[in-house]
Design a protein around this nucleic acid. Sequence first.
DNA 1: GTTTTGTCTGACAAAAATGTCAAACTAATC
DNA 2: GATTAGTTTGACATTTTTGTCAGACAAAAC
Lengths: 195, 195
Amino acid sequence: MAVRDTGAEQLIKDTAKRIFFAEGKRNATTQDIADAAGVTRTLVNYYFRSKDILFRQVFDEAMLDMRNKFDAVLSAELPFRKKLEGFIDMFYAEVTAFPYKESFMISEINSHEFDVDKKEISPALRIFIKDIQQEMEKGTIKKMRPANFMLNLFSLLAYPLLTRPLFKKLFELSDVEFERLLHDRKKMILEMLLC
Amino acid sequence: MAVRDTGAEQLIKDTAKRIFFAEGKRNATTQDIADAAGVTRTLVNYYFRSKDILFRQVFDEAMLDMRNKFDAVLSAELPFRKKLEGFIDMFYAEVTAFPYKESFMISEINSHEFDVDKKEISPALRIFIKDIQQEMEKGTIKKMRPANFMLNLFSLLAYPLLTRPLFKKLFELSDVEFERLLHDRKKMILEMLLC
DNA sequence: GTTTTGTCTGACAAAAATGTCAAACTAATC
DNA sequence: GATTAGTTTGACATTTTTGTCAGACAAAAC
């Protein structure tokens, strides 16, 4: 298949990603996606057979894409603190490009069809877990299960972005003020993790 | 309206809440809800006119319910540390009863129709912000914007539950092991916040 | 230049979900 | 016990979304 590549298949996937992750239209129909891509809906079915398959494919690729970015940062040859900084920067860049991606993923993760195709703990994660344990022995971070350290890192980083609209209203913050808040967090997160 | 209260209206709402928040069927149809409640779908329309209105009503009540619980804990006459502990316990209890509520709320908060009907910062929140500032002056917590302190609290508490299925797989954890992890977090979160 | 093969489209069919209405039912009220 | 008014239902209509299929189109192969 796909011998005479016209780019339509990729175009459809990219458009779907934009609509879901950048524009936050979680309930977009195949027609919406086709329209946005400037093709007919029939073509979407031609390449992906069904909506579910398109969904799954977009989700899986997004998942893989994220994992690759995580792995690149977490297995880099850098001191621990630099790794964390790199991770935070990478994460913020990702959110800036795709503000709704996190929210979308959370939804999927909690849906009943969720199933990742992993065999085992990734090598990069294994390296990072080693790092964490070493830092604990050095005393730069508190002793805890590595999984909990990672949960803390992700939590402090991701959650504020997931609840941004709510917190903006709760604390009566403008966009600029919220950005400033996020900016402050960068240093603060490091301090909290490396106590 | 509702002069001859048969309990059907409340039954439908309660059933919807159970399906959404406890069973995690985010895309349940009105038919699904009617079936689960043991009534006809027509009756759902009789009481709520449209699916959207039912959704909105269930969401708003859930939001209000949460806010009330938060307020009760945050404005209690207790030392700061006890308040935090109460908050954490309340949150875990809530999640145990409705495992998918958080995820549902995040979705809604990030949808484009989201709009809370609040006038101003709630009195309870104002009290808690005062508490936070006092603790900062006493030196029991690091100096930061109160909003950031609250974000930290929520993040550390809520995020692990949102990504539970993913982390379970990533770290190859059983349900029991994950529960143990969560249990450890209780003390840890307090330590991280009160350094 | 004609055949072949992959790409794309319009028209149609099917399915899924929501909404409406007249009429049946039932518990209060008179 | 007849009337009234709120409640419930089944049948029907509409809307929305998805899926299919025969055929048009275009580029490569012969």
